[in-house]
Design a protein around this nucleic acid. Sequence first.
DNA 1: CAACTAAGTTGATTTTTTTAACTTAGTATA
DNA 2: TATACTAAGTTAAAAAAATCAACTTAGTTG
Lengths: 150, 150
Amino acid sequence: MKERYKLPCNIAQTLNIVGDRWTLLILHDILIGHQTFNELKKNLEGISANLLSDRLKHLEKAGLVETEVYTKHPPRYQYKLTESGRDLEPVFDALLLWGRDHLDHCYKKMVHSDCQHEVELSYYCPSCKKTVDKSEIDTVSAVTSDLYTR
Amino acid sequence: MKERYKLPCNIAQTLNIVGDRWTLLILHDILIGHQTFNELKKNLEGISANLLSDRLKHLEKAGLVETEVYTKHPPRYQYKLTESGRDLEPVFDALLLWGRDHLDHCYKKMVHSDCQHEVELSYYCPSCKKTVDKSEIDTVSAVTSDLYTR
DNA sequence: CAACTAAGTTGATTTTTTTAACTTAGTATA
DNA sequence: TATACTAAGTTAAAAAAATCAACTTAGTTG
């Protein structure tokens, strides 16, 4: 993929990697256990084979997906997420929870297994070892530590 | 927008609303305070006027954005996020934090204002009033409460 | 040996996005 | 008062991306 968005912004640059049509859904489908080409194709109803092929190649190059031989004869591969691919989980969960709250029809929710109550996303400071409110968080430039808004 | 993805999945259906090229970046730019058409156009380097116009119309229809007159003469509008638009914040933050961890060049980070340490996303059970680990969370069908994997 | 399956590839068509020029209404400037 | 300028778009053409449908290749099964 060419660098589509040129903005100096984590979100834009992340979307340059995972923001194309179908890409996040492919990654999510691998995450939940669909690992062969045809399994993915079957599960992602509506995707075309060439697009799936292109996306998998791109994601492998970008280091989010890796292939692994699972039978030698005939040679068969399975697609797996790398660590950086698995690290998209909060993105999937944030989208899932937005959908839970705002879609006309909600398909999935996330509940705490102990009590079966729905969970939320929150922010955690590993140094203070506590949950912090969004209002206590600064989004700062990674370079100068100046306060930034993007 | 037509219903592009037909999958019975919160993530796919959410991406039907916000997954088109430029859409999340537009929403984020409104969130951080750019509210007029030309401000958005200037800040989203590379976007074309007609696409920005189309996206804003779509987002208004979908209820994530609303317009407000801010001068009568000449009539001038500003774009604002509705509550459902603002609720995308965890999505933006999850993308930002993925970028912090995995982009070659990181532009922004999020720190706890008290201690200046970088924060993480976590899951919170409002019923148990505590942070819960992802391993303690079930993603279940919203309808039948059966365990589901999508 | 014929049919089948997995994992794609190829080429044509359709849809989206980009590029660039134009519009419209009001404001400010010479 | 004509002229240029700005905000907020629209329009049309060209380019790029996605979809659709058919084909390929290598190995397997009946």
